[in-house]
């Protein structure tokens, strides 16, 4: 009897950890979008969550409304959101480079409101969804470990995306040009890198990553205009990881996700929403630069 109960606890803990990791992957992917843009352009994009929301609605249009194949709709949603991200930088944000940071904050916050309003006008304010190959299916791992395919697909999808991004940034000329432009714009110009275009492409990648997060999230959450508020938790994840570190964003996201799940189970109701911020505060008190942050010391 005691052994059985112990087993159950272990399985429950494992399931909480997997659910938390899945939620954390979504936070991590949105956080990754923050970090990519920040590293390159030193702009903090407070509309990152809303880009994810738009990605979700694009996918809903392609798969739910037009009845396209899930994978085709997935690809089209990424492409459409990425194109939107590119245009957003090329038309709007490029103009505020070099302006005070609060101008960028106000601009992106304003854009977030506009996106929500436009999405509400186009797709309505009711929550919608569509069926994915992973909806309501379980994967039995034996030993009583049964996990939802939806959560497992989020984790696997995130791993694949990270691998592709890693190869892109380390192997391709464009990826290396992006790294170079992030480190030193002036020098990058004289290496023949079209820095402005590269920055717009970084916006496209951030938006594309947000769209992947959105589509991965569909099996576990409905799509509505306010789903972009997840960006606040993702922001906490990015700061936790040391804002500016790509692995940090993902690790930060997963920590926030797991802590939330555990708090939801073991702590009184309502504490789930607080924990991510409590963890963030605790980490920042101990390591002010975040978990993976670079320490920048100024000689004075």
């Amino acid at each position: 009897m005691g052994k059985r109960a112990g087993m159950d606890d272990l399985v429950r803990l494992l399931q909480l950890a997997v659910n938390g990791t899945a939620a954390g992957c979504i936070y991590g992917l949105v956080a990754l979008g923050f970090v990519l843009i920040y590293k390159a352009t030193e702009m903090v994009n407070f509309a990152q969550g809303e880009l994810m929301m738009l990605g979700a609605f694009f996918a809903y249009t392609f798969v739910g409304l037009w009845g396209l194949n899930y994978w085709l709709g997935f690809g089209l949603a990424i492409a459409a959101t990425a194109a939107f991200g590119y245009a957003l930088d090329a038309v709007v944000l490029r103009r505020v480079i070099g302006q005070p940071q609060f101008a960028v904050v106000m601009l992106t916050l304003g854009l977030a409101f506009i996106f929500r309003a436009v999405a509400g006008a186009v797709w309505g304010y009711d929550a919608v969804g569509f069926t994915t190959p992973f909806t309501n299916k379980t994967a039995n791992f034996g030993g009583g470990v049964v996990l939802g395919q939806d959560n497992v697909s989020i984790i696997i999808g995130t791993v694949i995306l990270c691998l592709v991004l890693y190869l892109f940034f380390s192997r391709t000329r464009l990826g290396i040009a992006m790294q170079a432009s992030s480190q030193n714009q002036l020098a990058a110009y004289y290496m023949g890198i079209p820095v402005r275009t590269v920055f717009s492409l970084i916006w496209a990648i951030s938006a594309g990553v947000a769209a992947v997060a959105a589509v991965l999230l569909v099996p576990v959450q409905m799509i509505d205009v306010n789903m972009g508020l997840i960006g606040i938790k993702a922001f906490a994840a990015a700061v936790l990881g040391g804002f500016g570190s790509i692995p940090g964003a993902l690790v930060g996201g997963i920590i926030v996700g797991i802590v939330e799940q555990l708090a939801g189970y073991y702590l009184p109701a309502g504490s789930m929403e607080l924990t991510s911020n409590i963890v963030l505060l605790a980490v920042l008190i101990v390591w002010p630069q975040g978990l993976f942050g670079q320490v920048i010391r100024k000689r004075v």
Partner: peptide, 10 residues
């Protein structure tokens, strides 16, 4: 450049 513009984390 007068003040050196390298990719310093590479």
């Amino acid at each position: 450049f007068q003040n050196i513009e390298l990719f310093s984390h590479a």
